[in-house]
């Protein structure tokens, strides 16, 4: 009978053999990631630019092609190709075929050079690129043209993150939790007085007055939750802006909006339509699984070998006894 120690030793020998073999096979395989193909999908881009891919995927640009609200509205309207000019990448109206679904990397970074990463992926940082899609009056581009920002050659990406399609932020530095703190980055003079004002005390922020929704524009009947609807980017408050809160304090009866609001209030309704921010459910970000190192495979193989050794030990023992008995017999014959 083998001792427990002998059995364990046999099992360990198996484990070592299995682990060593696996390590050799696993190490022999090329561990370098495949070279990205410039004309590939966003998965290829993510091989090197995972950060951008994650921020893009969870943002409005990443969801432009498969957002359920968009898909429903698109299907309800009979799947018009016009929507896909912006909601897909490289849509060809003649053939009705898109290069890719949704607003992918190549929607903005194209044409891709053959030898990327030796050559940079191109990108037009001017407002023209964003304007390819966001130039409709629904996006308040005419208001934007009026703004001092535009006239001083500021671009969309000064305030907006093109990848996440949200506002610019950074953790731990000049935090821009909402658009108002983004204003304060540059308009520091205004921030000398504003915090001690009645407005600030009442909780009013920059955007409450300077980034009003287009109340009273031609398509005011469009629902505020409509994703196509953008706030007024002229950043110029109007009398209507003041009237939102001060309609009853004015010397003269208020303007159209205030008058309408009072009428609605008298009728028992709420005075002003509350702009509801567009809520888009964030899709779970799928990350490529990190490759397991050869040592990991070898460890696993070692465990399997150990188990195999423990199971095989009794058979080995029987085999050993048979061989040693035969040997004894032969020795006896010789004697």
């Amino acid at each position: 009978m083998f001792t427990r120690f002998k059995r364990l030793s046999i099992a360990l020998i198996f484990a070592l053999a299995a682990a060593g073999g696996t390590l050799m096979v696993a190490s022999a395989q090329d561990a370098t990631p495949p070279a990205p193909t410039p004309q590939g999908s966003e998965q290829d881009c993510a091989a090197c630019h995972a950060d951008y891919q994650m921020s893009w995927q969870s943002g409005l640009h990443g969801q432009a092609g498969d957002d359920p609200v968009f898909l429903k509205a698109w299907e309800d309207q009979g799947k018009p190709g016009a929507c896909l000019i912006c909601h897909d990448t490289g849509y060809d109206p003649a053939t009705g075929i898109s290069e890719a679904k949704g607003v992918t990397c190549l929607a903005c970074h194209s044409p891709a050079p053959d030898n990327h990463p030796a050559n940079n992926m191109p990108v037009d940082k001017s407002t023209d690129l964003c304007g390819k899609c966001h130039s409709d009056s629904r996006f308040a581009s005419d208001n934007w043209m009026m703004s001092a920002h535009y006239q001083r050659a500021m671009t969309c990406s000064v305030c907006h993150n093109p990848h996440s399609a949200g506002m610019k932020t950074v953790e731990g530095f000049a935090t821009t939790e909402d658009a108002s703190s983004l204003c304060q980055n540059c308009h520091k003079d205004a921030m000398d007085n504003f915090p001690s004002s009645k407005h600030a005390e009442a909780g009013v922020t920059c955007v409450n007055c300077h980034l009003g929704f287009n109340v009273g524009s031609a398509d005011a009947n469009v629902d505020f939750a409509d994703a196509h609807k953008a706030p007024d980017h002229s950043f110029i408050p109007t009398l209507e802006t003041c009237n939102k809160c001060h309609s009853t304090q004015m010397h003269a009866p208020g303007q159209s909006v205030a008058a309408a609001a009072i009428k609605i209030e008298e009728a028992g309704g709420t005075s002003t339509p509350e702009p509801t921010p567009v809520q888009v459910s964030t899709l779970p970000v799928t990350n490529e699984p990190t490759p397991v190192s050869p040592v990991g495979y070898a460890g696993l193989a070692g465990l399997v070998g150990l188990a195999a050794g423990m199971v095989l030990a009794p058979w080995l023992e029987r085999f050993y006894h048979r061989v040693s008995k035969q040997h004894q017999h032969e020795e006896e014959h010789h004697e």
């Binding site: 951008y52 921020s55 993150n161």
Partner: peptide
């Protein structure tokens, strides 16, 4: 790096 990727890579 808290500034990555928002402000560059």
């Amino acid at each position: 790096n808290p500034a990555v990727p928002e402000w560059g890579s």
